[in-house]
């Protein structure tokens, strides 16, 4: 794996120094601390087709999803993971969330080894994963309910968060009565409701149309900038990764591993105009070149 501090041709002398420590200096998040909040160390993961009645597993047909994957995410940092389909991005996120065990290697969160889900982490899922029978408020407060927070308290928090994500007036609607973008807002509010330290976002805007997607990116940035949460975003969108992140991890095709870390040289707050800057355009080209290279694009076939 190589570390890459993206350097446009016009880069200033001061910014050149960031190549020595790209993720802290060039990663423009002023909030990012120096201690690794998420530490993924040489993690590998295979999927074996389950056998029949004896519950046996067939090792010869095992699919290696991830191999020797290592990276760190600093406290308060916003990191995106991009890579071809099937490279194990979601598997990686699920293991950090504690929803899936690692085969080898280890994942530490806040210095403690991940052994399962924990109150320090919350996940925003690709398809919102809302309870279809529960209202917006009940969905947002679901995590709090599981943690036995008193009803009045959790409802009040859910209403506040509904307003924060722009769903005031929709508190009693069911998910089926909401658009895809609104459902994702509920998913985001549900994750924020439990007051996590880490936000894990699994392609949360992947199923949305382009206009809604950009609106949601702006909303996420607005909300995230006020929370200081360590965030890890899985995405297929290079533009989304650049626009939102302090740092981008590019993964190879299957078996997935991080082949390059790229510090995003743009400061915060991010503005849409930044997408037209030479820095943004060149960085997009660089990431696309990586994703199109034979080692990345073909390895999973």
């Amino acid at each position: 794996m190589s570390s890459f501090a993206w350097q446009p041709n016009e880069i200033k002398a001061r910014e050149l120094s960031t190549t020595m420590n790209p993720t802290i200096e060039a990663g423009a998040s002023a909030k990012a601390g120096s201690d690794p909040h998420i530490d993924v160390g040489q993690v590998s993961k295979s999927f074996r087709p389950t056998g029949g009645g004896r519950g046996g597993q067939d090792d010869s047909r095992a699919v290696v999803a991830l191999e020797d994957t290592s990276f760190q995410v600093r406290r308060g940092e916003f990191v995106s993971v991009v890579g071809p389909s099937g490279c194990g991005k979601t598997t990686l996120l699920r293991m950090i969330a504690g929803l899936s065990p690692v085969d080898t290697g280890q994942i530490n969160v806040g210095g403690k080894r991940v052994a399962g889900p924990g109150p320090d982490r919350a996940v925003v899922f690709q398809h919102a994963a809302l309870l279809p029978w529960a209202s917006v408020v009940d969905n947002i407060s679901f995590g709090l309910r599981l943690r036995k927070t008193p009803k009045a308290q959790r409802t009040a928090r859910a209403r506040d968060l509904a307003a924060l994500v722009g769903l005031a007036g929709f508190e009693n609607h069911l998910p089926g009565q909401l658009s895809g973008g609104m459902q994702q807002r509920v998913g985001l509010a549900r994750a924020l409701a439990v007051d996590p330290q880490i936000l894990l976002l699994d392609e949360p805007f992947g199923a949305l149309d382009e206009i809604t997607r950009r609106q949601m990116q702006d909303e996420l940035l607005r909300i995230w900038s006020g929370t200081g949460l360590t965030s890890l975003l899985i995405t297929h969108s290079v533009d989304e990764a650049i626009f939102l992140s302090d740092r981008i991890l590019v993964m190879s095709g299957r078996p997935g591993r991080v082949i390059e870390e790229i510090a995003v040289p743009m400061g915060r707050p991010r503005e849409r105009e930044m997408e037209r800057t030479p820095e943004f355009v060149d960085l997009r080209e660089h990431v696309w070149r990586l994703l199109s290279s034979p080692t990345v694009a073909d390895a999973h076939d």
């Binding site: 919350a122 996940v123 599981l146 943690r147 439990v194």
Partner: peptide
Amino acid sequence: DIIDAASSFGA
């Protein structure tokens, strides 16, 4: 997905 969501909250 909803099982995963509930699991992620420690159900």
